[in-house]
Simulated scan of single mutants.
Amino acid sequence: MTDTDPLVPVLAGLVVDIVWFLDSCEDDEVDPDSAVKMMESVSWVLTRLPQDQRDRFLKVLSDLAEAEQDPGRREFLEAFPFAGGLVEEEPEASGRAKV
């Protein structure tokens, strides 16, 4: 099942891509302290979503990961909920997400 509002998956994907960029960029591209602060800010906001919105976000991430063709992005999407503190259990094939 996919989300009924087409904007939600797009925005969820953008959040993940921004965090992925910050996680993988070199020190000369983005100041490491700034990158960590931004990733912590994203995590803080997402963990404060009401449970129904958090569940919706997690479902959208799952749908995006299932449909993703790029193995690296799929792995990051799968690891994102645990790395961002949205779930307590790490997925079996965890990626590099360090939100």
Rank of each mutant, 00 (worst) to 15 (best):
V42T: 08
L46T: 02
D70W: 09
W20S: 07
E88K: 15
V42H: 01
P50N: 10
V87S: 06
R74L: 01
T47Q: 15
E29K: 08
D23A: 13
F76H: 09
T47N: 12
E75T: 11
W20E: 11
D3G: 05
L7Y: 08
R74T: 05
S43E: 08
L86E: 07
D63A: 13
S62N: 12
K37P: 00
E88P: 01
V30R: 03
P32E: 07
V60A: 04
T4V: 14
E66W: 02
E90K: 14
A93L: 11
A83P: 07
L22N: 03
S34I: 11
K37S: 13
K98I: 12
S24G: 15
R54H: 06
G95L: 02
D28H: 11
E26Q: 13
R54P: 04
V42D: 01
S62G: 14
I18P: 03
D3C: 06
L11K: 08
V36S: 07
Q53C: 10
D5Q: 06
A35R: 02
D3P: 02
Q53W: 08
V16L: 07
T4G: 05
V36N: 05
S24C: 11
I18E: 11
L22W: 05
G72M: 07
E88M: 12
G84E: 03
E68G: 05
A93D: 13
L14I: 15
A79M: 06
L22G: 04
K37T: 13
F76S: 05
P81C: 04
T4S: 15
F82M: 02
F57E: 07
V16M: 01
E29C: 08
K98N: 15
G13W: 06
V10K: 12
S43R: 11
R54S: 11
R96K: 13
E29S: 10
V8A: 03
R73C: 00
G13H: 08
Q51L: 12
L86D: 00
V19H: 01
V15S: 09
W44H: 15
V10D: 08
L77M: 08
